[in-house]
Design a protein around this nucleic acid. Structure first.
Lengths: 339, 339
DNA sequence: TTGTAGGCGTTATCAC
DNA sequence: GTGATAACGCCTACAA
């Protein structure tokens, strides 16, 4: 068994109260001499306070949680890196979990988080925009709030919630504008699952840009994938049978990389025959060939910021706090201008 | 504040002892009627045991930890996914941390893990093969052992330690053999940092294969990178100034993708002018163009297996337990046979 | 400036 | 079959 505060007290020849005061840098005065004795004993025994015992007397632990949808996706990996690194700088550990939207699994996590008295939760992926999901999430949000804990979303959830994210509509709109400015008028849109909030917002941005340019929206030019590498590849393979478009706008980088492969496997060239763009700015999209033109999302920074907000008590608990990071067009060479 | 066992006892009109028995499915008999009452009360109050209090009476929590080197690298992401998913199936949460080998940071983590009474630790990346690192790690291993906890490594650490991993030497040897079998005699080797165990083992496999074929090892054909996308790109750019090789063997997939870009940017073609292979089998290497020929590592399965071992008490505490997964050649089209 | 004692929520040892 | 009660390790009034 590890040493307890009592062992330290005995070793230093003082009471456990005094030891506790030294440990916690209590405002209660402790003579320099006594402090020295205690510190020496702590060092000698290599004593570390038992956190469970501490937590028993405190509302929560120095632990936060991050729910990701797919950790093997660098998109979440980059966020996770920002989160865990920022957290540990403050001595905070992070539970990292891998399930974006499977409601049952999420509930399971919430239960455990509750039991472990975590200090706050970061929601990685976009939520399902369904009545059911919104209801479940709203209830959960209420519970956290009642326990004075914060939840922060890094992507839209379809409900009012504190967030640190990008403007998905605007980002997709600007990307579409860019394609339009280069002369592309028929743009295939390849998005993730149709009922995910993030997907919906980006699609909205695409449509807004077209409408703004008085281009009629052709629903046949909008397809959805399950966001897997193979799924995206196959979806596009089908559409490529009769390509009636000059560019493909993928709502994330991984899909875009799959799509570029599909285009090439179809005997067409990127960007000479078809231009391809994505959203994300993940490193691997910048080392593909051609280099993917994409909108850079500061994923790492989003993670860092989320932790910072999470560990800061809200001044106005009833005001939703939204923090927005800008995105930036990152030109590669996967796009060609059309005469 | 959340409900405590006392609230449940009061609600059910029994003692806390009885409630505890019901919660823990104690072998101590409880009448069916009483059990029903208690369960009803638990449900009504939505009571969840306080884990801190439980932990106070138990040697450890149902939490494990995973130390990764770079979570934004799908290599670790895939492992993390396997680990967290396998863990939660057993109701175990995972601390995930992002630092492979910065000794100071690792020590910090060990300290916290100790305080949080975690149940076991999984070490993601390969350790530094230096006297200093080995010593520090060995000490840490002893501490864990003395607390009856397990550490499991997913990559070589230069010390005797339980592990779930692949045979790095063999994997690199077989890959080299493959290139040799296609007629490549001068193979540039691009490895990660030279003092990392994994890197050393793979390099060893490369050398063994060459020696076995009586090919003299040319140290000029061995270069090291810092494993970043840009670093790998630049290192190879330099070597490409005077290419005296027909193939490039990269000791991981991400490096290989960077290298393919470097080759192309140099006006050379993969595989017509230079063949490129990697190790890993990450999804993005299978959607690049050309598709990367690589050795598939079952990263997800390694993560799952590690959790399984971690949660199983060792039968013979003093016997090092090594579990080895096979790797498999995955042919893409980044390699050309030479006449 | 230091120390005593009660309590946080559980589990385990006894007694009944 | 059920229930007091003493730990577990720590913090914090309150006393001295």
């Amino acid at each position: 068994m590890a040493y307890s505060i009592e062992d330290v007290a005995r070793e230093a020849g003082v009471s456990i109260t005094t030891v506790s005061r030294v440990i916690n840098n209590s405002s209660h005065a402790v003579s320099e001499q006594t402090r020295k004795k205690v510190e020496k004993a702590i060092k000698k025994l290599d004593y570390k306070p038992n956190i469970s015992a501490q937590t028993l007397r405190q509302p929560y632990t120095n632990v936060i949680a991050f729910i990701a949808r797919d950790l093997s996706d660098a998109y979440y990996g980059e966020m996770a890196r920002g989160i865990t690194e920022a957290a540990i700088k403050q001595g905070v550990l992070s539970f990292v979990c891998n399930t974006g939207r499977k409601t049952d699994d999420e509930m399971r996590y919430h239960e455990l988080f509750n039991q472990y008295r975590i200090r706050g939760l970061i929601l990685g992926g976009g939520g399902f925009n369904t009545e059911q999901y919104r209801k479940t999430l709203s209830e959960e949000i209420e519970k956290y709030k009642s326990r004075d804990l914060r939840i922060i979303a890094l992507a839209p959830q379809g409900v009012d919630i504190d967030s640190v994210m990008i403007d998905n509509v605007d980002t997709a709109r600007r990307m579409t504008d860019y394609l339009l400015s280069l002369g592309h008028q028929t743009i295939l849109y390849v998005g993730g699952p149709a009922n995910v909030c993030t997907v919906q917002e980006r699609l909205k941005g695409y449509k807004q840009a077209l409408e703004h340019h008085n281009i009629k929206i052709n629903e046949n030019l909008i397809v959805h994938t399950d966001n897997t590498w193979s799924g995206s590849y196959e979806v596009v393979q089908k559409v490529l049978a009769k390509p009636s478009f000059t560019a493909i706008f993928c709502d994330n980088d991984n899909v875009a990389l799959s799509v570029m492969r599909a285009v090439k496997d179809h005997g067409l060239r990127v960007p000479e025959d078809i231009s391809v763009v994505g959203i994300g700015g993940l490193p691997n999209s910048q080392y593909s060939s051609p280099i993917l033109t994409t909108m850079k999302i500061p994923l790492y920074e989003i993670g860092v910021k989320a932790v910072e907000r999470l560990l800061t008590p809200k001044e106005m608990p009833n005001v939703i706090e939204r923090f927005e990071f800008p995105t930036e067009l990152q030109k590669g060479n996967s796009v060609k201008a059309i005469k």
